[in-house]
Computed example of a mutant assay.
Amino acid sequence: MKKWLRISALCTVLLIGGCNTANDQQEPEEEVNGEETEEDPSTEQTPEDDDAEQEGEDEGVENNEDFLAVEDEFTKEFLVSTDVEPGFHQMRGKLDGFEMLIPENGIISDLLHDIENDAVETLIYTFNNHSEKKLYDVKIVYRNQYPEDLKQSYLDVFKRANNFEGEYEYAEVNDLEMYYGSFEDEDEYGPYLKYFGYLFLIESNQSISFSFTAMCQGKEECNISLTEEAGIAEKLMYSIRLIDS
Rank of each mutant, 00 (worst) to 15 (best):
L111S: 05
G60V: 09
Q206Y: 08
D72H: 05
L176F: 03
L155W: 06
I243T: 09
N163W: 13
P147V: 03
L5A: 08
G181R: 09
D110H: 08
G87Y: 06
V61R: 02
D137M: 12
H89K: 01
E36A: 11
F164H: 06
P41H: 01
T21R: 14
K2S: 14
V13A: 14
Y195K: 02
K3N: 10
S42T: 00
T82K: 15
D110Y: 06
A230E: 02
D66K: 15
Q25R: 14
S42V: 02
L176D: 04
E85F: 11
E62S: 07
A171C: 13
E177P: 10
S245C: 12
V120Y: 06
Q90C: 15
T126Q: 10
E188P: 04
V61D: 01
Q25M: 15
E71L: 13
L15I: 13
G34W: 01
C216L: 00
D58G: 06
F127Y: 07
L201P: 12
I240Q: 14
Y170G: 13
E85L: 12
N205Y: 08
L95N: 04
V138G: 00
N63I: 11
R92F: 12
D58Y: 05
I202F: 15
V70I: 09
V32F: 12
N105I: 13
I232V: 11
Y125H: 03
E59G: 08
N23R: 11
L176N: 04
A9W: 02
E30D: 03
E188V: 11
P28Q: 01
N163F: 14
D156S: 14
L15W: 15
D51N: 15
E62L: 09
H113Y: 13
Y238W: 11
E73H: 13
N129G: 12
K2G: 13
P28T: 03
D118V: 04
K151L: 08
I7Y: 09
E177C: 07
E53A: 14
K133G: 04
T126S: 10
V80T: 09
Y179C: 09
A230W: 00
K3G: 10
P28I: 01
N144K: 05
E121G: 02
D51A: 15
E132N: 00
